[in-house]
């Protein structure tokens, strides 16, 4: 394991209804130990994974959304959210959780992990990866 590869985890599905979102996050958390260059992408219904104020009491499944806020501690600091997917669902960046990380290269300044990008920019981000895992 000499070279560092660029890993992109693509999240396209809503947080509940299927297990893809939860099991994607499990891969991200385990994968963090491998010290690769990790990014996450949220598009289509995947943008719902990051919405604030999730409450799953009525459906009897675990609300795992707080885990996203811990990603900074795992040095997972690039969460790309597609603007068009937000727009199409009547969401804005303000509907998303605040997720931050402490930048070790900038005196541990707290910075936002979520970066809203256009569909065209998302395509470029994808093209730039070595490994794309789609969930």
């Amino acid at each position: 394991m000499s070279d560092i590869k660029k890993f992109l985890y693509v999240n396209r599905k809503p947080p509940y209804g299927t297990i893809y979102a939860l099991e994607s996050l499990e891969v991200v958390l385990i994968g963090a130990a491998f010290e690769q260059d990790v990014s996450l992408a949220f598009l289509d219904d995947g943008v719902f994974q990051l919405t604030r104020g999730q409450n799953t009491d009525a459906i009897g499944v675990k609300n795992f959304s707080p885990t996203f806020r811990a990603l900074g501690d795992y040095e997972v600091t690039k969460l790309y959210v597609e603007r068009e997917s937000l727009d199409e669902r009547g969401l804005t960046e303000g509907d998303l959780q605040e997720i931050t990380y402490e930048d070790e290269d900038d005196d541990w300044e707290e910075k936002p992990s979520i970066r809203v990008v256009s569909r065209a920019e998302m395509a470029e981000i994808m093209a730039d990866q070595d490994v794309v895992l789609s969930f």
Binding site: M1, D3, K5, F7, E26, V27, I30, G31, A33, F34, Q36, D130, V131, V132, L133
Partner: peptide, 15 residues
């Protein structure tokens, strides 16, 4: 474990 998935991504040319 899931580490085997990540390792596979690192060690192969295509996933």
């Amino acid at each position: 474990g899931l580490g085997q998935l990540i390792e596979m991504g690192i060690q192969t040319d295509r996933l």
